[in-house]
Amino acid sequence: MSRLALSLRINGETHEVLTAPHRTLLDVLRDDLGLTGTKENCLEAECGVCTVLLDGRAVNACILLAAQCRGRDIVTIEGLASGGELHPLQRAFVERGAVQCGYCIPGMILSAKAYLEECPEASEDGIREALAGNLCRCTGYQKITEAVATAARELYGGRTTQ
């Protein structure tokens, strides 16, 4: 079987990876690079636990071939906190009680980050729409939505409609 040599830029760091062509970004992140903060579940882009940012946009790593990510900028949950300091979204999720089992949370936070960068004037409806591709089975999404609104206020100072 052939192998592809890929140079992947993940959380600001370049990783040289040798992988089979069929392997997805999710496979490479979890199995080759040990970045298991990106979660695995349905493998059909229905649940969103594998959400990462590709050039700043939320994507499902489970259906993205690693080869398609060559030369592009990837951010995973491991890339959010800096110097031991939680990102405002992470802090809001902790403080607003938005975390239960936590398995969906990395994907949620990354979807929320992409959305807030696009729409700093976040509304509750907008937040819910932006997170519709991330299933959570624990929370009913209410405290997650509140956490994103809280982070939006902190990050962009805007008034978020509740």
Binding site: R30, L35, T36, G37, T38, K39, E40, T76, I77, E78, L80, A81, L86, Q90, F93, V94, V99, G102, Y103, I105, P106, I109
Partner: peptide
């Protein structure tokens, strides 16, 4: 919560 929001919490699947 901190381990879960940073992706460092290890689940069985990880």
């Amino acid at each position: 919560a901190p381990g879960k929001v940073t992706g460092t919490a290890v689940y069985a699947a990880d």
